[in-house]
Nucleic acid binder design. Structure first.
Lengths: 365, 365
DNA sequence: CGCCCCTCGGCAAGCCCTTTCCCGAACACG
DNA sequence: CGTGTTCGGGAAAGGGCTTGCCGAGGGGCG
């Protein structure tokens, strides 16, 4: 022991002779070369022992291992990635970790990633399309082996094209990408059945006797919101409800959005018998708004959401929603990106949406 | 003026003889050398233009930029990190993304990280101490510039020592670390006032007239749980409540844990007037258990938690808890790790905990 | 007993960048 | 017109690691 510091790895410090205010730094990480020297073998041998790329005879093997342990050697993963030409990191781009929808998906992705002993780069866009683009760049620059993007498709043509372009660039550079909630990007895709889910929900609500509805929708440009709205309309029509009467309010895709839209709805006059918030986060906001306005759910108005996010478990009244297997969606996307051979044609996985009727929607007499 | 075409930067495929814009789409990322060749300048010049490390004359500058754009060049961040000897990634180790406590903290960390244009490696240990250790290794191996660990200290001496050892190794290799909820590890630390927060809570509950309490605690070895329990006891004592009567049940630090402990409590016989769950996730579990057993909160029993996690907003009755500024804690930890000069003595930040009385705890007549 | 093949170390040439060093050209000034 | 000073560009030396290739030794087999 105690020899750890004397390794003669001369840096370029020798040049400036005595004049150098720079001390003998040698404080950085331990190098493979030092391990090799310590063990009295060549660099190559040390490398082979530690990365197990080829068998190495016992005497040397043991010495290298011992040296590595003693010196507390940690391989430089960056350098390894460069040398091997392949990294073991996965990129994950979501809107926001704080949103249970995204954190559930992230959870699913991470499970898969961990199983394969990879690491994940997490980036959150906070719903900013430019940041999304930027992150694809970043991830590509880090040469992530797989990239999973969980955004929401918009009608913004320019952005869609740019994104597709970036992803194509990423794929051309040899990466695998999977996108959740978006297709037509030339990558693997995991897409929930927004439309048919909403349609089924409309049907169930109609069967409970509802005829007058309001929809709290997200921004107009958001396809997820739009699909759900369209599906809901279709469902109503199929049940013989006149969709001309349907009140549709557009707002932010957030809790605050739901809250203010619900407030608006209350202010606007007589409530419909049932309100459909196109996602659960908005539904929770709406629930809060109703509660603080003294509107009882479901007695005064029924309320349904979409996604079936985790925090719903603890809400009273329990919220009717359309269940999406969020973790599974994340996991599936990760599998697509990680287990598919590059160059394979991209797959699109449809995820089933299932209506779950709970206490927030009552049967009308 | 030489045509500068002589650059023999041939790639491994040099089959198409003279001239011409590059047509052969070699798979894999575009290299800096290709950009340089395309622009007709040297590698060094291209590098300087793209990383802005030194001024480059306009004619060349423009050509390099154009070439990079045309070829869709993306620098290899890994190689850059190796060459520069510094990476721009931050490691974040938490227990579980799905747990709102951790995702809030993660949110705070990410905000700071994003502001600085860095990226984060996220790892979740699922409360497995060995994985925690392993991840510190991994992060170190990736040479993350800063490492933030958000675990919970246990009484497991061996593990604590190992962790301290790993972190010391990380620091010795030049990294900055900050730990949330743990101190004495020789790193920066952000620690909530668990004990005094619980003490204050106990006081408030006593002032509401409660005298008979039960505590739903986490695993015995978890210091976070233990500190809160101790603080709670202290608070009770200060208010003249005999802690010998205190029922303490230990279980998992999760929703299920809270749920089954509450069920146990119910089964055990007459309920105390107030139950303190040492964290909110457990409190939510307990609430569910009470509800399904027909025990009304707060009429039949008062319930208080700790942490004030986000989903609490939508729970009825609104839950009394001890507020911790979770996002801020994450942000603070990130700041400590990112803005402090290496070699500085490590700082410990105490985070204030504040009792928030809500509807789940009623005043006794 | 000789041959061949197989195992295992080591050298050195990569991987893709950055950065230092150095030199020629361009500019200012006396 | 010479000299000093930028300034900009190229070549080459790293940065820490992997790996193709060669050669030396050792065993199995004919």
């Amino acid at each position: 022991m105690t020899t750890a510091r004397e390794s003669p790895t001369g840096r370029r410090a020798e040049q400036d002779g005595a004049a150098g205010p720079i001390a003998v730094r040698r404080s950085g990480p331990v190098l493979l070369a030092e391990v090799a020297a310590h063990a009295g073998v060549s660099l190559a041998t040390a490398s082979r022992v530690l990365s197990g790329s080829r068998s190495v005879g016992e005497p040397h093997r043991g010495r290298v291992l011992a040296a590595a342990q003693e010196l507390r050697y940690t391989p430089n993963a960056q350098a390894q990635a460069v040398a091997r030409g392949a990294s073991n990191v996965v990129g994950l781009v979501i809107h926001d970790v704080l949103d249970p929808y995204f954190s559930s998906i992230a959870g699913g992705v991470m499970r898969q990633v961990e199983e394969r002993e990879l690491v994940v780069f997490l980036a959150s866009t906070h719903s900013d399309v430019d940041r999304e683009l930027e992150f694809v760049q970043t991830m590509r620059s880090h040469r992530v082996r797989a990239l999973i993007i969980c955004g929401s498709r918009t009608t913004d043509r320019v952005h869609n094209e740019r994104l597709a372009h970036e992803l194509e660039g990423y794929a051309a550079a040899g990466g695998q990408a999977a996108v959740i909630s978006q297709d037509r990007l030339g990558t693997h895709a995991v897409v929930p059945q927004n439309r048919s889910g909403a349609r089924a929900l409309a049907r169930e609500l109609c069967r409970l006797g509802h005829r007058r509805f309001a929809v709290l929708a997200g921004p107009r440009g958001l396809l997820t919101s739009r699909d759900r709205l369209i599906g809901f309309r279709e469902g109503l029509t199929a049940e013989g409800v006149d969709v001309a009467d349907l009140q549709v309010l557009h707002g932010e895709f957030t809790r605050e959005g739901g809250e203010s839209l619900a407030a608006e709805l209350i202010a606007a006059g007589p409530l419909p018998t049932c309100v459909f918030a196109v996602n659960d986060v908005m539904a929770l906001g709406a629930l809060a708004a109703f509660r603080s306005a003294g509107v009882r759910v479901p007695e005064d108005v029924s309320l349904a959401g979409f996604d079936d996010i985790a925090p719903l478990r603890d809400v009273v009244p329990s919220l009717t929603s359309v269940h999406l297997p969020l973790e599974e969606m994340g996991a599936r996307a990760a599998q697509l990106a990680l287990d598919t051979e590059p160059q394979t044609t991209s797959q699109a996985v449809k995820v089933r949406a299932e209506v779950v009727l709970r206490d927030s929607t009552r049967r009308l007499p």
